[in-house]
Design a protein around this nucleic acid. Structure first.
Length: 889
DNA sequence: GTACTCACG
DNA sequence: ACGTACGTGAGTACA
């Protein structure tokens, strides 16, 4: 009969190893989980692969042990446990209880002693024991039945130590290690040993004389300094050995039956790991019932490389019959999308179709019907480029049912890792190759075509095959978080609109851009000359460092503000220095023009697509924590508008064709309206219902004057307060903006809350809600976790509070304009209008519209935008048109 | 790659 | 005692 096997784990040793060895992880509400994750993985690995008959985890008690009694300095000078580790200790204990794994501890004894006692006792009864630890001390316990699994490199590897290995490595028996340690001591436990004797010497001595008694019995044989050292610390040597020796006869009631391994896969265990968002562990537990089932599935889901027309027809036929297909694709994007390959997993088969074999058009022709069928549900990851490609091919892509990219974003918008490999690792505990590993990065980034065919095919089919599991895990979570409608009715359909923006682009007036280029260069030249002459030297005005030296060292202007690395020279500082030296205004002007020229003129020239004479920006749907969309390459959401010279940039943005105009529609004060709605403040609501000038009304309220008597300064103040509110601005900030005293600013804020009490209530309530629930939501259920709100660092906690009150406002505005975008887009599509929605800038939509359709389109846009949500206040849209974006604003 | 600065809502 | 308004993206300098 096979001998029984037992595993004993040194609990704290493993806890520390995992804490430092597993990358930091946390749940969305900030509970650290890397120890749980690491510990659980090891446990499950052991239980599944090693299959022990008995298992136990030993822990030290907080009480002192006999070692402290014999030596007061024992383990002195140990560092306190880090906070993120401490928080996980109780969770580890809970996990062991749930998994029915025996915990071993006894006051007055260390884990090592318990491990020693149990292992020796088992060893005697013929049970094979493996001790899992990261502590070399346990090596002394090794005997023919006891081995040590020593964790290395964090936890990823263990090294097995048995008697032979100890002899090889140390040249003495396991038992002799106790005497060795007696002589050499142990820094980490503060065991003194004999001063001046290290491991090498100690081993030599014990080899020679057998034990410490032997050493001292033959002390006359030992020469010189070493004899001196040994005699000096004789007492310490014996004491140290006493401390180092693991007790193997702890008075412990040991009943082997309590250690039997039971089935750990209860519902409670799964709930526990779900609660801690260790989804890959959940997947592991679920999958381990039939070992390797998951992995086999990926590998055995048959890959069919579609190499000829017959196979293509077969693949399409299977897809047409399917209710659901799982898609992975690669498309490269210029101004339009180029499909490189598509993998479709359906009915246990993964069809890999490459455009190298068929060409895009042939794939399009064949797959059109599948793509256009609402009844064939598509499950995939980030459909934006597929929508672009469909647009290019004249395919009306329908039936997109599940997008893992968007689902993961909605579940936790702060995460920012939503690539396939991230999701596979996070939710499925599968490590698959990342895009970075596949393509490289930076300059040496490879194209899809340069990948090995086999690698491209297996990677994509793996992705397609994983989609099913991802949906199974993510879809219920979307439901549970009450985000089904946000997901299905807003985010999923929005992808098509963004794809359309990217595909359609924004036409640029190249001549006007050249004209601006010349104009700005000329201005910069003049300003540069002027600055050099006024400051008495030439230097790089663009270098904050050089500029700082000139202003504050050469011209001796007063230092207003410092940065981490030197003098601050930002606009705020320069404004304050304006009166002190004539060069300052020129520098400010130079900065303005230089920004316009480099970012908006030179920058655009590089990025214009000369085939289309358009700019095709990229819109990111899963980036911001609040739900807004972001734009890049180039960013079309920060085109100058505030100052006149900057506004000229907008003249280069023109309609796509002759006899078309741009229509610009923007929500008026949408964020304040949302604040009115959520807070329910009657005064604020009535202002909007009565279509008052909101800032004037606010001024009238806080300054106690009639609307007609509000001065322009009062209105400016009120406006600053109104805006500041949305961000949780404090008196200090307001005083800085308005150049008033902090007390005065506080006074205005107090008066504001006096007049708008429900706004103050909202702010208090939302902060409380965030603290209680750990997250805040928007009007349409978008969620953001705010773990920082519980920070012990008051500044971070305060910042969390500001996020708590700003996010529902900014995020609800984002929800609303997204709805408007979808509605406008769909309406124009169904009406087969030639007008095109081409851009959003947070609270604004831009439409490229044929002249003859202007009135109708304006009506549609206004109607859809104002009707996107029904609030306690009207949502007013201001709309205008022009031959370029400058005029249309 | 980081710091600084500045463009937008 | 601390620092002080949310959310973005891009260009330039410099290590």
């Amino acid at each position: 009969m096979e001998p029984k096997k037992m595993i004993i784990i040194d609990g704290y040793s493993l806890i520390y190893r995992t804490f430092y060895g597993v990358r930091p992880m946390a749940t969305k509400d900030g509970i650290p989980t890397n120890v749980i994750f690491g510990f659980a993985n090891i446990l499950i690995n052991i239980l599944e692969n090693y299959n022990p008959d008995y298992i136990g985890v030993a822990f030290d008690e907080k009480k002192p042990t006999f070692r402290h009694d014999s030596y007061e300095n024992y383990k002195a000078g140990r560092m306190l446990m880090p906070e993120d580790l401490e928080k996980q200790i109780d969770l580890v204990m809970e996990m062991l209880v749930l998994m029915d794994i025996k915990k071993i501890s006894l006051p007055g004894y260390e884990a090592d002693d318990l491990i020693g006692t149990i292992s020796k006792s088992c060893s005697k009864s013929g049970i094979e024991v493996d001790i899992l630890t990261g502590d070399r001390d346990s090596f002394q316990l090794i005997d023919p039945n006891i081995k040590v699994l020593y964790t290395k490199k964090g936890i990823s590897e263990v090294e097995i130590y048995d008697e032979g290995k100890i002899m090889d490595q140390y040249g003495v028996s396991p038992r002799d290690l106790i005497d060795v340690k007696g002589l050499m001591g142990d820094k980490s436990d503060n065991i003194p040993g004999v001063a001046g004797i290290g491991e090498k010497t100690a081993i030599k001595l014990i080899k020679e004389y057998g034990d410490i008694e032997g050493v001292y019995a033959n002390i006359h044989e030992i020469k010189g300094k070493m004899q001196e050292k040994l005699l000096n610390d004789k007492e310490n040597a014996f004491l140290s050995r006493h401390l180092a020796e693991i007790v193997t006869h702890v008075p412990l009631e040991f009943n082997i039956g309590e250690y039997e391994t039971l089935n750990y896969k209860s519902k409670e265990v799964v709930d526990f790991f779900e609660r801690l968002e260790c989804f890959s562990i959940v997947a592991k537990i679920a999958g381990s019932d039939s070992p390797n089932q998951e992995n086999e599935k990926i590998n055995t889901n048959k890959i069919t490389e579609v190499t000829d027309n017959k196979l293509l027809q077969e693949a399409i036929t299977v897809m047409k019959k399917a209710r659901e297909i799982y898609i992975a694709y690669v498309a490269e994007r210029d101004y339009e999308s180029f499909l490189k390959a598509i993998a479709v997993s359906v009915e246990g088969n993964c069809y890999y179709i490459s455009s190298n074999i068929f060409g895009e058009d042939q794939i399009a022709q064949n797959i059109k019907e599948v793509f256009e069928s609402e009844n064939i549900k598509k499950i995939g990851h980030d459909f934006k480029r597929l929508y672009s490609w469909a647009l290019k091919q004249g395919i009306n892509l329908q039936g997109v049912e599940f997008d893992a990219y968007l689902a993961a974003y909605l579940i936790d918008p702060s995460d920012n890792r939503y690539k396939m490999n991230d999701l596979a690792s996070k939710y499925l505990n599968k490590e698959i190759i990342s895009d970075e590993e596949l393509y490289g990065k930076g300059k040496s980034k490879k194209t899809f075509d340069s990948l090995e065919r086999e690698i491209a095919m297996t990677t994509m089919c793996t992705h397609a095959d994983l989609m099913e599991d991802l949906r199974r895990l993510l879809a219920p979570q979307i439901e549970e978080y009450a985000m089904a409608s946000l997901y299905k009715d807003i985010e999923l359909p929005l992808t098509e609109v963004l794809a359309f923006f990217e595909h359609e682009g924004f036409r640029i007036d190249l001549e006007e851009l050249d004209r601006l280029d010349v104009e700005f260069d000329e201005k910069l030249g003049n300003l540069k000359k002027e600055i050099y002459s006024l400051s008495g030297q030439e230097f790089n005005i663009n270098s904050p460092k050089q500029l700082g030296e000139v202003l504050f060292e050469k011209l001796m202007l007063p230092v207003v503000k410092k940065t981490k690395t030197g003098y601050s020279t930002d606009a705020e500082v320069l404004e304050k220095l304006k009166g002190k030296h004539p060069v300052i205004t020129h520098i400010l002007d130079y900065r303005t023009v230089s920004k316009l020229s480099s970012t908006y003129v030179k920058g655009f020239k590089q990025i214009i697509n000369f085939k289309t004479e358009k700019i095709h920006s990229t819109f990111n749907q899963a980036l911001t924590t609040t739900g807004r969309i972001s734009s890049s390459d180039p960013n079309l959401q920060n085109i100058p508008v505030k100052i006149e010279i900057g506004k000229k940039i907008r003249k280069v943005f023109i309609p796509s064709k002759k006899d078309q105009v741009l229509i610009d529609a923007d929500y008026s004060q949408i964020e304040l309206r949302i604040l009115a709605h959520i807070s329910g403040d009657e005064t604020l609501i009535s202002s909007f219902i009565n279509e008052e000038d909101i800032h004037t009304r606010t001024a009238s309220e806080i300054f106690g004057v009639e609307i007609e008597d509000v001065t322009s300064t009062q209105r400016v103040y009120a406006k600053a307060i109104n805006f500041g509110l949305i961000y949780g601005k404090q008196a200090y900030g307001l005083s800085q903006d308005l150049g008033i005293s902090r007390k005065e600013a506080q006074d205005y804020i107090d008066r504001y809350f006096g007049r708008y009490p429900k706004v103050e209530d909202y702010m208090k309530n939302i902060v409380k809600e965030a603290k209680d629930k750990g997250f805040v939501t928007t009007l349409f259920g978008r969620r953001r976790y705010l773990p920082e709100i519980h920070s012990r660092n008051a500044m971070i906690a305060k910042s969390g509070e500001r996020l708590a009150l700003n996010t529902p406002i900014q995020g609800s505005a984002a929800d609303i304009i997204k709805i408007a975008m979808i509605d406008v887009y769909r309406e124009l599509k169904t009406k087969k209008s030639d007008a095109k929605l081409i851009l959003t800038v947070h609270d604004e939509l831009v439409i490229d519209c044929p002249l003859e359709e202007v009135d109708e389109v304006k009506a549609i846009v206004k109607d859809k935008m104002e009707g996107a949500a029904s609030l306690k206040v009207p949502m007013t849209v201001e709309i205008s048109q022009g031959e370029n974006w400058y005029q249309a604003k």
